[in-house]
Design a binder for these strands. Structure first.
Length: 177
DNA sequence: CCCTGATTCGC
DNA sequence: GCGAATCAGG
């Protein structure tokens, strides 16, 4: 049956908060939530007092976390392959990485395999590599154990932080462009 | 023309 | 409180 769309339940508000703070646009949040328009999202954001994510004039970068020095250098050398903090806003048409079964190391993280890791499930220690279209409702994250200090697991960190030279050769793996 | 958030105001 | 319409901008 059709899912009845509740208005602003605690869950949905929490999700809204989280997505907004992560830097998603109102329209993207709207499609993630489902059943609401971007106007509704914006309206709610204002009612919650969440507006003003980015402060122009503020010396520090408000919305985005600072990357480590190493990662920064790597990014500078490798170019804008992947965004540093939350890649969900990135404009990739259709990622779809063959990342079905990453048996890396015995992942200590509890939830894994079949469960879709949504933004709600994401923890600091989990890989935030985006899977799927951010404007789609089935969007989720990798969720594997992330490297300490980095937002990605070993697998996706390799894709995200490829050295410039190596990139030419082994670029097909990522799907980024 | 696509998008963004901000604001207003009838409901 | 909610969100469509509108506004102002990129």
């Amino acid at each position: 049956m059709l899912e009845t769309i509740p208005s602003w339940t605690d869950e949905r508000v929490e999700l809204l908060r989280r997505l907004w703070e992560e830097g998603l646009s109102a329209s993207q949040i709207a499609t993630q939530l489902g059943g609401v328009t971007r106007n509704a999202v914006i309206g709610k954001v204002h009612r919650l007092g969440l507006s003003g994510r980015v402060k122009p004039g503020d010396g520090a970068v408000a919305g985005r976390k600072k990357v480590s020095r190493e990662a920064e250098i790597e990014l500078a050398e490798s170019g804008p392959i992947a965004p540093e903090v939350i890649p969900i806003v990135s404009h990739r048409p259709a990622p779809d990485f063959p990342q079905a079964a990453p048996p890396v190391v015995a992942a200590p993280t509890a939830l894994a395999s079949s469960t879709r890791v949504t933004i709600m499930d994401l923890r600091e220690s989990m890989c935030r590599w985006p899977m799927g279209d951010p404007t789609s409702s089935d969007f989720h994250y990798c969720g594997d154990r992330s490297i300490t200090g980095l937002p990605y697991c070993t697998h996706h960190a390799q894709i995200a932080y490829q050295p410039a030279a190596e990139r030419k050769r082994d670029r097909r793996a990522g799907g980024f462009r």
